[in-house]
Amino acid sequence: MEFSLTLIPFTLLAVFILAAIYKSLTAEKTMQSVYWLIFMLVAVGFIFLLANSEILFAYQLMVYSGGIAVLMLFAGLLTEQDELFIDSSIVGFIKTSKTQVLIFIFFAIDVLALLLSSINGSAYEETVLANSEYTYTDSAHQIKLFASYLWNGFAEVIILLGFLLLTAILGSVKLAIRETDLEELSDEYLARIATTSEDISSLPGMEDEVEV
């Protein structure tokens, strides 16, 4: 394997991504977790650029860091609890069982081994050699191909996705604007339970129930 200059940004991005994931998983606050996720998303977008897929870069930044990330920031902000009530023991790696760690390790090893053993064939080498001359400048042809591919081969999927997104938007708006008065509800519920239990105990034959 030859050394290539593009390996430098790739390595930097990979390290940054992994660091961001680490920070995201171990952050003290939900918001921190989310903004580290956003940095990771942007970095993944640049990974796409390195992987010769600038259109994915655009989509990644537009949809992921522009849309999803904002949504998750909102979620984090709106559901953030008062720090007094947060059980400090459940933050971070505390309560992580050995099983989980073992699963994680085994999974990583498994997948890596599987991937490496799968791509260790001649087809991979040939493909890499065939594409080694390519320079990252323009993929207009590929994007046109992509557009036709999407609309000819995946039209149903795209329409389905459109409906899915529409449903998701409408459903989430409906869910989000629904107001629930928790205290009133619970009072009513408790009152109902109380009356029901009274009714049951006052029924004939319920008092002298014999334990078998």
């Binding site: 903004y35 956003i38 942007v42 977008g45 870069f57 655009a58 989509y59 990644q60 930044l61 537009m62 860091s65 522009g66 849309g67 990330a69 904002v70 920031l73």
Partner: peptide, 8 residues
């Protein structure tokens, strides 16, 4: 895409 980093 680059502009959409702005809001978060």
């Amino acid at each position: 895409a680059v502009f959409s980093i702005f809001p978060p």
